[in-house]
Design a protein around this nucleic acid. Structure first.
Lengths: 121, 121
DNA sequence: TATAAGTATAAAGTATACTTCATACTTTAT
DNA sequence: ATAAAGTATGAAGTATACTTTATACTTATA
């Protein structure tokens, strides 16, 4: 079980950002039970996994609410299996869409680059 | 030459958004010269192209300032050819990165989906 | 010809995603 | 044992990317 500092070093995300994500309901840490002196929050490996997913999904244009929907579909116990599969399939389609768009943009830039190479001075 | 309404219909972007992009320096329309009665702005096909590029690049996680840099590298006359090529190559690398990340996220989701299918009830 | 629809502009407002600040307590290092 | 570093929490502040509002003028349509 990790403290927030370790989580931050692992993922490269600032502590404040991790706190913000937790507050946004993307995952939850745990408080230690019993007569402890402090109020620290502990995180397990599943949280790290979610943070990596958040980080990568964000960088390719998913919003936090889309990512929350995704994480819920993957881990929540209050969503039926069939509904989960439904959501996950939709996300996979969305990802394929994004890959198509990226290839489109790439092609466009490559073409325009060749134009720049040919004519521009 | 098109008016903003036509541009909006073409690209699916709201008029206010197009105005915002123009104000942000992503492209420029032209005013008609001479003794005209109105103050309308006209746009050519190059602007449409830029808007499509903006739309797609945004949806895959590029920020407006990254997109501005890209558009400047493609169309500006105040940037040297070698510098343009440099910027364009960097953008192409960034796109390859994003494609990699997307495939990573896709793989991860597909894997977790198979887990959901196996064990979840 | 009037009225509805389109265009221009500036400014204020909103949503998202953080980031910083202030305060207070806990743990670690010297 | 005390100073430095880590953690918690709530609130305020900031950046980006729009979106809405208000006002005024122009063009198209019934």
């Amino acid at each position: 079980m990790k403290l927030i500092n370790q989580l931050s070093k692992e993922t490269g995300l600032p502590i404040a950002t991790i706190r913000f994500y937790e507050k946004s309901g993307l995952f939850k840490g745990q408080k230690k039970k019993g007569n402890t002196t402090n109020n620290y929050t502990y995180y397990d490996d599943a949280v790290s996994e979610k943070l990596y997913l958040i980080r990568d999904a964000k960088s390719v244009g998913f919003t936090l609410s889309e990512i929350k929907e995704l994480i819920d579909a993957l881990y929540s116990k209050r969503i039926s299996k069939s509904r989960k599969i439904e959501i996950l399939n939709a996300k996979l389609l969305q990802i394929n869409e994004k890959i198509k768009e990226l290839n489109g943009v790439k092609k466009q830039i490559a073409y325009l680059k060749s134009e720049v190479e040919k004519y521009d001075c």
